[in-house]
Every structure is written in structure tokens, then in C-alpha cells.
Amino acid sequence: MSAFSDSLGVSASGLKAQSHRLRIVAENVANTDTPGYRRKTVAFSEAIERSGLAQVTVDKVALDRRAGEQIFDPGHPLADASGHYTGSNVDLIVEIADAREAQRSYEANLKMFDQARQMSSGLMDLLRK
């Protein structure tokens, strides 16, 4: 029975990690037009438990080092003497691609979780007979 709970744990860790990634992507999209906002990125790592089972964990959330777009708007409150201010460095195309990748990874982990659950349920049905 341990293998079933192990597989559920692995897929649950993947679900949690991709959920966190989707949350960060949503923050980035929401702040696309926020002046000075820096895009956040998520790094994953592998955590090995005492049982030797590897699970996915969120290692760290970091800020993208790219410079923000320089926008010319002399009337903006954040504009400098030359009339420019720094916009965000969020690229919506990149965020959409990240969101799709995270969504597909989430769905794959969910399918694995469901398969393990169905196998466990099938085993219980066989043992009852």
C-alpha cells in the first residue's frame, strides 16, 4: 500500500509546485502596467525524503534581472528630468507561455494522482471479493 501513497505524494508535490508557479505568473500579468515592477520567476528543486522518494518543491522566487522598458511620458509623476520613467519588465507572451506550461504540468500531475487513486480503488474492490 506504501507505493500508492508514495505516488500520491509525488503527484501532490507536483500539483502544489505548479499551483505556486501559476500564482506567480498571475502576479506578473496583473502587474504588467505597474511602473518599476520586476517579473518574478520560480525555481524548483528536488527534495528527497527519508524513504528515498523525490518530491518537487519550490526552491525560490527570484526577480528577473532584465531592465524595465523606458517609457517617455513627461507628465507622469515618476518621470525624470528627461521625461522618462521605468516601466515593468513583464513580457505577456512569455507569461502566457509559462502559464500554459504550468497548466499542462499541473494537468499531468492531476492525471497521475487520479490514476493512482483509481488503481488503489480497484485493488480495494479486488480484495473485497
Rank of each mutant, 00 (worst) to 15 (best):
A99C: 09
G87C: 05
F113I: 00
S88I: 04
I24S: 01
Y106R: 01
D114Y: 02
F113H: 07
A54Y: 05
N109Y: 15
K16H: 13
D59F: 02
E95H: 10
H84M: 13
T86N: 08
Q103K: 14
K16A: 15
R65I: 05
A79W: 07
L126G: 02
G68W: 10
G9F: 14
E101N: 08
L53N: 00
R21Q: 02
H84P: 05
F113R: 00
A116L: 06
L63T: 04
T86E: 15
G68S: 10
G14H: 10
V61R: 03
L53W: 00
L127G: 12
P77D: 08
R23D: 14
G14N: 05
A12G: 12
A102L: 12
V29K: 11
A116Q: 07
D80T: 02
R23M: 10
D98M: 05
A102V: 08
I24A: 13
E95V: 12
G52R: 01
S45N: 10
Q118D: 11
M1Y: 08
P77F: 12
S45A: 15
A99D: 07
G36S: 12
T41D: 12
D98P: 00
D80A: 03
I48N: 01
L53T: 00
A79M: 11
D73I: 12
A81W: 04
R39P: 01
D33P: 00
D91C: 05
L110M: 14
